[in-house]
């Protein structure tokens, strides 16, 4: 907690700022709680990844019969779109910390657009798989169970992230956060980075290893 107090410039002058100390400590609690939520979400993904690896080694080879290899080129392209949104999110938070609202707004909107772009790319990939190989969630054996479940769950997280960032953006426009007090934005950034790095693992395990 001492760290948080030192980190927050407004509470540096000590005991006189009772409310600011309350803010700093509440912020610390919320961020810790959010990090723990991310840990449990990570466990959720890990469990499904375990299921995928388990089914893959007990199954009929990978990709299963009837399913083509996944399109690495397009997936790499789509990954870069998502990773790029991670970078823009980082810039958005940095600019917020430095009080550049306009730059913040630009990067934030870029993040939302790139996130939506990733989702569209994933939709395009699903559509290709369905039209060309008739691969659907329930109709493609363990491929559906692992690939569609995991990427779909990740896509749902991206979708939730887009909603989350949109709400945060509207909140910043409405003046909910200040240059010193932006715990909500920090948590949004953590969430978005989390969604990004989950994709690093999914990308490696589904596309690079087949």
């Amino acid at each position: 907690m001492a760290v948080a107090v030192a980190h927050d410039p407004s509470s540096g002058s000590g005991q006189a700022h009772g409310v600011d100390r309350l803010y700093a400590e509440t912020r610390e609690l919320r961020i810790n709680g959010f990090l723990l939520f991310m840990v449990s979400d990570l466990v959720l993904f890990s469990s499904f990844i375990f299921a995928y690896l388990y089914l893959r080694q007990t199954g009929q080879g990978w990709p299963p019969p009837g399913i083509s290899r996944l399109d690495v080129a397009f997936a790499a392209f789509n990954s870069v779109v998502l990773f790029g949104s991670g970078a823009t999110m980082h810039f958005a938070l940095e600019n917020w910390k430095h009080g550049n609202f306009n730059k913040y707004a630009g990067w934030m909107l870029a993040t939302i657009v790139l996130g939506a772009g990733f989702l569209s790319g994933q939709g395009y990939e699903y559509w290709t798989l369905y039209t060309k190989f008739h691969a659907s969630w329930s109709g493609a054996g363990i491929f559906g169970a692992s690939f569609f479940t995991l990427t779909g769950m990740h896509g749902f997280h991206v979708f939730m992230g887009i909603c989350y960032l949109t709400i945060l953006f509207l909140q910043t426009v409405g003046g909910v956060y200040t240059k010193q007090k932006y715990a909500g934005l920090t948590m949004g950034t953590l969430y978005w980075h989390f969604v990004d790095i989950i994709w690093v693992f999914l990308f490696s395990m589904f596309y690079l290893w087949q």
Partner: peptide, 10 residues
């Protein structure tokens, strides 16, 4: 800072 108005005092 025992009574500085932090979360413990809330």
């Amino acid at each position: 800072e025992l009574h500085g108005g932090g979360i413990a005092e809330h």
